[in-house]
Design a protein around this nucleic acid. Structure first.
Lengths: 149, 149
DNA sequence: GTGTATGCAAACCGTTTGCATAAGG
DNA sequence: CCTTATGCAAACGGTTTGCATACAC
């Protein structure tokens, strides 16, 4: 766990990225975020602290992904999401309210080993996401309501 | 002219879609395809048989997905892929040559049951894809070569 | 000082929408 | 007929690129 406003310049130096204000704030933001977010959210957050162009946000995100600081995820929304690249985990995505919950490592490792043995396919990474209805939305849907995301 | 192998008009009638030439050919194409493909490929194939606009291709694909004939998949490429909606299965995607291989049902069911019990989250669907290097590409990469997709 | 990061404008790509016309049942 | 499907043009949202300038090291 990191302190409230942890200076991320060490992390940036480690991956040979210059410590610019935008990058520092963006990385701090990721460290406080619990759920995968999109470029728009990052832009909004950065813009609340300094002036930044959305193009720069994409360049920052790409550099973070390239350096392995951040992981790029795709929920099939026509846009990418990003989250801090920590331990392997997956997501429960509510199709009603859009909430996202983490689930920690399932035994995909076993499956990957099996794939390697049977198919001789070298697995680098995998994506596993579950789409459905979260506990909060289930009663709401039964009453015929739908919460706008 | 059309419907050489299998006339798909029955399938279309079943889901209450009008049997137009483009839809028939598209559905036939899907039935012969073994791997998930994209809108461009469908457009190209359709255009080899008749004149069709890419907008119409998207509308056809969306109607197929909506009616459950076809499944929409996302490999994080910035575009959607589509495949015939058959038994639950997943994919091995080679990051070197782009080849796609199916793997049949892994025991995700158990995981889904667990999620339902522990998280009270109602799973409607899931996506599971593996990214890595296929057997063909492994020696090639060791020799420092890279096959263009 | 040198190379990288940023801003701005513009392009790009997949996809959707509006509207008029064509065609299926 | 009446409804739905298609074509065309245009819009759209996310993302990338080119180029000049500003900034980190």
């Amino acid at each position: 766990m990191f302190a409230k406003d942890h200076d991320c310049s060490d992390e940036l130096r480690e991956v040979k990225l210059k410590s610019t204000p935008a990058r520092l704030i963006a990385l701090q933001h990721f460290e406080k975020l619990s759920k995968p977010t999109d470029s728009k959210d990052i832009l909004k957050f950065l813009n609340s602290k300094l002036n930044i162009d959305r193009v720069t946000v994409f360049r920052i995100l790409n550099s973070f992904v390239e350096k392995g600081l951040v992981r790029k995820i795709d929920f099939g929304e026509g846009k990418a999401r990003y989250e801090l690249n920590v331990a392997d985990h997956h997501h429960l995505i509510c199709q009603s309210c859009g909430s996202i919950e983490d689930i920690s490592d399932c035994n995909i490792d076993a499956l990957e080993r099996e794939i390697k043995q049977n198919k001789h396919f070298l697995v680098n990474s995998h994506s596993l996401e579950f789409f459905g209805i979260c506990p909060d939305c289930q009663p709401r849907l039964n009453r015929g309501q739908k919460k706008k995301n």
